[in-house]
Each structure stands twice: as structure tokens, then as C-alpha cells.
């Protein structure tokens, strides 16, 4: 009897310790990110482009703009495709073998190594053209985004009550109108949250960009050229031996971290608010 209690207490203590270890590292990493990042932040970051080490006028403007363009274009490709595919699964395919097969494939794609996707896009969009370009980076990110959006759309549309659809059919509405005007409307909040989270997820991806959009030390909005991004800049700068570049790397990490975490928190708040209702 006493032995059981002792074992019980040991296990409970170990589990609590695990949770503390997890939290310890979370706070350590967050603390590093905030303290190093805030130290490196200044207005210069947003005004100047990346420059050779030792230069006073050096910032991240080109990388921030490049990142926004890449994520924006990736979203423009990935979100509609993901929503349409998810709509097909939820509204047309339902539980058919084919629909479930696509769900499985999409689940596998969701966890596929991002660097392999980068290599794939390199082979189809960079090698044939002969130079790195922004389109390739955006497509690589879009490939990662589609499965995430597909999954949320599928799940969220499923939550819309069947009766709403039936009511609309009874009024003589064709299926596409029912989907667009009734189902989408009912699932709006959930789908938008899923989209937000998918944007946060791809915004932090580096590996698919390394050899697609590559990097560029100049300001550019031309997707046919190599395009800088915060993540690739972070990688190049953090592994360099120059103190000022490393600091810029931390600033990039901070901007990225704040963006990703705040979008995640926002998504959570939206979900929570809906649940309360």
C-alpha cells in the first residue's frame, strides 16, 4: 500500500518536472528572442536595406517587403485552391473512397519535409529558367499551404448543420449557391481562422525558400528576380561572423516571432470567442 503511494508520488513528481522543463525552455527561447530582438530593433531596420557588414545604414527593409510579397503571393495561390479542394471534400466527395484518399494524401503533404518541397520547386521552376526567382519561392510556400487550408475548410464546412443546406435547396437554390451563400457564410469564422494559422505557419518557413527565391541584397518587387525574405536573411546573417549582421538576424527573428505568435494568439481568441457564444 505504502509502496504504491510512493511510486504514485514519484511518477506525479516526474510528470510535473517534465512540464516545468517544457515551460523552462519555452521561456528561455522567448526571453532570448525578446531581449536580443528588442536590443537590435530600431527605426533603421525599416528604413534601410541589407548592407555589407560594418555599414551604418543597414536594415531589413528589402527582406521585410520581400517576405510580405512572397507570403502574399503564396496565399493568393494557396488559399483559393485549398478552399476549393476542401469544399469538394466536404460538399461533393463527403465520405467517398476518393475523398478519403485525397484527405490522406493531403495529411501526408502537410507533414512532408519542407526542404524537399524546395528541391522539387527548384527542379521545375528555377532550373528551367536558369535563375532564382520570387515566383518559385511563392509556389513552394503555396504547396505547403494548400493541405492546411484544405483540412480546415473541410472540417469547418462539415460543422455547418445539414438543415441549413436543405432549407436552401427547398427554396430551389442550385448547389453552388447553397455552398457560397449558405455554407461559406456559416463557416466563415472557422475558415478565416484556419487561413490565419496557415499564413503564420508558412511565414516562418525557411527551407523551401533557400533555393527558390534565394536572397537578394537589393530592394525588389519583381517576382522574376531572386527575392529576399526575413527567414533566409536570418539564416545568412546568423551564420556570418559579423556582429552587426548577427544583430540584424536577431531583429529578423524578433519580427518573425512576434508576427507568428500574435497571429496564433489571434486565431485562438477568435475560436474561443465563438465557443463561448
Amino acid at each position: 500500500m505504502i509502496k504504491r503511494k510512493i511510486i504514485n508520488n514519484i511518477v506525479l513528481a516526474l510528470s510535473t518536472l517534465s512540464a516545468l522543463i517544457g515551460l523552462f525552455f519555452l521561456f528561455w527561447i522567448l526571453w532570448t528572442l525578446v531581449s536580443k530582438g528588442l536590443d537590435a530593433m530600431s527605426m533603421k531596420i525599416f528604413i534601410y536595406d541589407t548592407a555589407p557588414p560594418g555599414r551604418e545604414e543597414s536594415g531589413l527593409r528589402n527582406a521585410i517587403v520581400g517576405q510580405l510579397i512572397l507570403v502574399g503571393v503564396a496565399s493568393a495561390i494557396g488559399i483559393p485552391l485549398g478552399i476549393l479542394a476542401g469544399t469538394y471534400l466536404s460538399e461533393y466527395g463527403k465520405n467517398s473512397k476518393f475523398a478519403n484518399f485525397i484527405r490522406d494524401i493531403s495529411d501526408i503533404m502537410m507533414s512532408a519535409p519542407s526542404i524537399v518541397i524546395g528541391a522539387f520547386v527548384y527542379a521545375i521552376l528555377v532550373a528551367p529558367v536558369g535563375h532564382f526567382n520570387g515566383w518559385a519561392g511563392a509556389v513552394a510556400l503555396a504547396i505547403m499551404m494548400v493541405p492546411i487550408v484544405l483540412r480546415t475548410t473541410d472540417d469547418m464546412l462539415n460543422l455547418v448543420p445539414q438543415q441549413l443546406r436543405e432549407a436552401a435547396y427547398a427554396l430551389g437554390a442550385p448547389k453552388y449557391k447553397v455552398i457560397i451563400q449558405i455554407v461559406y457564410r456559416g463557416a466563415k469564422v472557422g475558415v478565416i481562422t484556419g487561413i490565419l494559422l496557415s499564413i503564420a505557419r508558412i511565414a516562418g518557413e525557411t527551407a523551401p525558400l533557400l533555393f527558390t527565391s534565394f536572397n537578394n541584397n537589393f530592394f525588389t518587387t519583381n517576382l522574376n528576380e531572386a527575392m529576399p525574405s526575413l527567414t533566409v536573411t536570418m539564416f545568412n546573417f546568423a551564420t556570418s561572423p559579423y556582429e552587426d549582421w548577427i544583430n540584424l538576424g536577431w531583429a529578423a527573428a524578433f519580427i518573425l516571432g512576434v508576427f507568428v505568435l500574435s497571429v496564433n494568439i489571434l486565431g485562438r481568441l477568435i475560436i474561443k470567442k465563438r465557443k463561448v457564444k
Partner: peptide, 28 residues
């Protein structure tokens, strides 16, 4: 026509996921 096109468009997007996976294997 719109109704059918919407269905095919969405079906095509779903199939695209499969196409991408197969193409990745093939290209690699």
C-alpha cells in the same frame, strides 16, 4: 453550367493535391 463548373473546379483542386504529390516523386 455555373453549378457544374463550380463542382468540376473544386474537384480539380482536390485532384491537384494528388497530382502534386505524384509529381514530387516523379521529379525527384
Amino acid at each position: 453550367i455555373v453549378d457544374k463548373s463550380f463542382e468540376y473546379l473544386s474537384k480539380l483542386s482536390a485532384i491537384l493535391v494528388l497530382i502534386v504529390l505524384v509529381t514530387i516523386f516523379w521529379v525527384l
